[in-house]
């Protein structure tokens, strides 16, 4: 799991430009699937034939991460940017970022702004001394994101960028390898453009038309400094989602997940996330609808470059997912 997380968080994969991670996942999972393809949107769809083909199960974890898109380059060679996905300017300031072509830069805040920072107050210094020089390396429309970083804390925890949702991808990937024979025809989908409105999973789900669907994504925790009332704690196990701002999970899926966790002694907790959406919604509402649920990984400081998780939670999430895939949903 740890190695997979490290590999996946190292890939460049800002929303809309997920092909590097997609290629990595395709190569890695090919031997474990009946078929694997990349669709027109860029979603990776890994298919495993089930014991029964009467039902279809779709699993979604998103490959994309939030980042910046270049809007202009000013006369001093500063790169002006807009956000791709939900950027918090404080979380994203004074970071080293990397563009798709490998160019590096640092994000700095316009010092004339004293408070209420907006994304437009962030600029990127790539070291250029003029507009002309900057334009040799960076063009309008280029994307960038924080450089890969991963730190182990106290051995059991990890702080890294883009665990939202590379960790979900890692869990789905490990599960895809571990789930020898799924109960139903199962589609492990690694989706694009989640951070900009759940856009990849919607057409992917339309193509599949699942009966059951499970998203794997991160959730906030109530034990983060200054958090609102929330029962989820880091280290307390896989979080079974009841609701977030985009979806109310099907009772049927919630019950199935809880029963599965109880039966197999998997540590779990129930989750209500009051700010944030997931691919669960798009899978729930596609076509005539599916029974949709979400396994969430408790995560502190989401959308910062030091998103922090507990490896035990990630392992519990993987075990829960794999057991649901192999034992079926009941």
């Amino acid at each position: 799991m740890y190695e997979t997380i490290k590999r996946y968080t190292s890939a460049f994969s800002v929303s809309g430009r997920e092909k590097y991670l997609a290629n990595l996942i395709c190569e890695e999972l090919k031997p474990y699937t009946d078929s694997i393809k990349v669709d027109a949107m860029g979603n990776v769809i890994a298919f495993k034939k089930g014991k029964s083909s009467a039902k279809k199960l779709m699993i979604a974890s998103h490959m994309d991460e939030i980042g910046f898109i270049v809007t202009a380059i000013d006369d001093n060679g500063y790169v002006r940017v807009s956000n791709v996905g939900g950027i918090n300017p404080i979380y994203s300031s004074y970071q080293t970022v990397k563009f798709e072509n490998g160019t590096k830069g640092v994000t700095v805040i316009d010092t004339s702004v004293k408070k209420d920072y907006k994304v437009k107050d962030l600029v990127i210094d790539i070291g250029a001394s003029s507009k002309k020089e900057a334009m040799k390396k960076v063009a309008v429309g280029d994307l960038c994101a924080p450089v890969a970083n991963l730190t182990r804390l106290m051995g059991k925890r990890i702080a890294a960028k883009a665990l939202d949702d590379r960790l979900g991808c890692a869990i789905a990937s490990v599960s895809c390898k571990n789930a020898k024979t799924p109960a139903y025809d199962t589609y492990y989908v690694f989706t694009v453009q989640e951070e900009v409105g759940l856009r990849g999973s919607l057409p992917a789900a339309f193509g599949i038309m699942p009966d059951y669907s499970i998203a794997i994504d991160v959730t906030a925790t109530g034990d983060t400094v200054g958090a609102k009332a929330m029962e989820v704690k880091l280290g307390n196990g896989a979080a079974i989602k009841l609701m977030d701002s985009s979806v109310i999970c099907s009772q049927f899926m919630v019950d199935s997940m809880v029963n599965c966790a109880k039966r197999n002694g998997i540590k779990y907790q129930l989750e209500i996330l009051e700010g944030g959406g997931t691919d669960t919604r798009s899978m729930q509402v596609t076509g005539s609808g599916s029974h949709a649920g979400c396994i969430s990984i408790p995560t502190r400081y989401i959308h910062s470059p030091v998103e922090t998780i507990d490896l035990k939670d990630a392992e519990a999430c993987e075990k829960l997912l794999t057991t649901l895939v192999t034992e079926g949903i009941e």
């Binding site: 985009s246 979806v247 109310i248 919604r281 729930q284 509402v285 596609t286 076509g287 005539s288 609808g289």
Partner: peptide, 8 residues
Amino acid sequence: IGYIGATT
């Protein structure tokens, strides 16, 4: 919560 039942 976003018209989900009508569309489906």
